[in-house]
């Protein structure tokens, strides 16, 4: 059970307070009618399933009730950073900086 830093509580909290909520930054197209079936399928189902730094969502279900984003390395399971919903997808430079402790 790893620890997750909740960007709202600003604390590390045990994993079992959280629910994993899948890959992050998958934009839900509001004009979905204009998408082809293939494009819609890609939105619904296709995932990076990244080996390495993975952008993903977590829900602090048994805490502050907030959804937030994280970068986690799927090879080591270590979190690189977590950030609030609405914050832009971090750049490679930002991820690197976070790995080096800012």
């Amino acid at each position: 059970m790893f620890e997750v830093h909740c960007p709202y509580c600003n604390e590390k909290r045990p994993e079992i307070e959280f629910a994993y909520a899948g890959e992050a930054h998958i934009v839900r197209e509001t004009k979905a009618d204009e998408l082809t079936d293939q494009e819609w399928a890609e939105f619904l189902f296709y995932r990076d399933n990244k080996r390495g730094d993975h952008h993903e969502r977590w829900w602090h279900q048994h805490g502050c009730n907030m959804f937030f984003n994280a970068v986690r390395n799927t090879l080591t399971d270590k979190f690189v950073m977590t950030y609030k919903m609405g914050v832009k997808r971090p750049t490679k430079t930002q991820i690197k900086a976070a790995k080096n402790g800012k």
């Binding site: 629910a19 909520a21 969502r57 829900w59 279900q61 009730n65 907030m66 959804f67 919903m85």
Partner: peptide, 9 residues
Amino acid sequence: RHMEDYLQT
């Protein structure tokens, strides 16, 4: 959860 997820995200 489904509602909170859509509302927040």
